[in-house]
Every structure is written in C-alpha cells, then in structure tokens.
Amino acid sequence: MTDTVLDVRNLRVEFPTRHGTLTAVDDISLTIKRGEILGIVGESGAGKSMTGMAILGLLEPPGRIASGSIHLSGDRIDALDDRAMQSIRGRRIGAIFQDPLTSLNPLFRVGDQLVETIRLHTDLTKSQARTRAKDLMREVGIPAVDERIDNYPHQFSGGMRQRIVIALALCAEPELIVADEPTTALDVSIQAQITALLKRLCRDRGTAVMLVTHDMGVIAETADRVAVMYAGRLAELGAVEDVVRRPQHPYTVGLMGSIPSLRKDVAELQMIPGSMPRLNAIPQGCAFNPRCTHAGPKCRRDQPRIDSAGAACWLALEGATA
C-alpha cells in the first residue's frame, strides 16, 4: 500500500445554486501509484477539471467537496485549511494547466521565478537554487539555458513556456503532478515533445501523474491506466490497452468508434446519438441510459457504480439490464 501516492475515495463535488445543488463530481474513487500516469478523459463538462481541482484544493466557491476523502501518501488532504493546502501544493503536488501563463508571472524572469519557488520549498542558497533551476531547465529540454534563464515568459514559444511550467512544478520534487490539458493549446509536434517529457519524468523520478485531457490519443500514448468520465461519474477505469482496445462500457465503446482511425478505413464513423446531459438534467439510474442502445428498466432505476476499476454498467456488472 505504501506505493499508493493518491487515493481518492467516493469523492463528491457540489455546486449549490439558486435552482438546487449541482453535482459536478459524483462518487469517484481512484488511485495512482508511484511512477504511474493515470489519464482522466471525457467530453467537455464531464467533470475532469473539477476532479483535478478538488485534489489540488483549488475549487472555486461555492464549489465544495461534499463527501469522500483524498489521501496523499497516506495523509488526508481534503479537509486542510488554505495555508496548509497551499504548502502541500507547492511541495508535494505540482500543477500544470492548459495555459502556461496562468502559472508564470509575466513581469519576472523565468529564472527568478524558478529560484524563488525552489527556495520556498528547500533550504538551498540563492546560488545553489540558481544552479538547480538551470538543471531543471535542462531536464525539461530548454536549449541554451545560460542565456534563456534570464528571459521573460513572453520571450518563449508556447511549447517552451509549458516546459518552464513543468520545471516549476518539479522544483520541490513533488510526489504527484496534476496536469490539466497540458498539451491542448500546443501543436501536435510540440504536444508530442511535452507528453514524452512527462512520461520520462514520471519514469525517472517515480512521480505519480494525473493527466486530464479530452484527447483519447494523448491518453493512449501517455497513460498507464485511464478513467473515463461521463456526467460527473466514472464510466470506466482500467489499463489503457484494455480501455482502448476492449472497452466494456457502451459509452466508451461509442467514444472509441467515433474517433477516425489513422489506419483503418470506415465508410461511416460510429455515432452516439444525442449529447451528454447538463448537470441539472442528469437522468435517474445510469446517466448514459437515454443514449444507450442496451438500456433496460434497471438502467433507468439504479445507478451502476464501480470502485476504482471496471465499467459502471449493469451489463458489465451483472450481465443483464433488467
């Protein structure tokens, strides 16, 4: 068990609104081991970012964790106050977001930002910290570090900025990195450089990574295991090869069939009729039932649930939907 870095149990995130309470994350359980990349995939609004933000302790009020628990290497972190959580964020959990400029201050040289972060979390001297900053920049693949260290964020390209953010996230050698759409704003060739970098860091340093993205291709190539989210719930969670090649949940099956292949010719792409329900209109039972060709009476009555593995579908769980 000591290998488990992140342990999320029955997490529920709610937004109280004037028209009632919306459940953005509904009863999610998952774990990430040392050196493992867990992908979180799903369509826009599925609750991927909310799950990541809950773990980072960055939910914007009125959003809140309504129930469940989050443990980081055995320590419970979901009920900490802001100060304690802030220190955990820099030291033990690193964060990478889609827009690198949310993590970088445009007014300061990147080197100074790295040095400051390193000194905040270690007791290195200023010059030691600068040496370490250069090492980190080299590790994330910035060329000509001696010159670039004194540049401002706007002097870097999008891909280079995202590398700097990764270096920033690595400063305190965190146990866990939460990366929310880290490559979505980048070109494919640059995207590949960043995912390869994340993979290498995870392998070399044993960092656990939670990779949030809507891009199944990025997940397939980067993640060890993948959690598919639908309407705030886990639809399916398993080894990436299994979920990609032998999906069990009808939603995952449809999702995989709707992606055009680079190798196979198909006359028509598979379509899932309709679209994902809004949070205020999630149907009773299985959230996917109005779009599912296998739906039976039980699907419209009872919500199928999984505990960190398998497919949340009555067909897969019980072999019947009656």
């Binding site: 494919v188 590949a192 390869a196 291709g217 397939a220």
Partner: peptide
C-alpha cells in the same frame, strides 16, 4: 513523415515515440 510519426495513434497504445525536435 515526422508528423505521421508524431500524432498519437489509438491503434497502438503506449507507443514510445521519438518526438520531432525544434519549433515552428
């Protein structure tokens, strides 16, 4: 060719690839 080598391929999960160097 580099572009084709670079794009994620769902038919080959967990492939290790050599990303294209440099920037546009």
């Amino acid at each position: 060719r580099l572009l084709l080598d670079t794009i994620p391929d769902l038919d080959a999960p967990k492939r290790d690839r050599a990303p294209m160097g440099g920037e546009v």
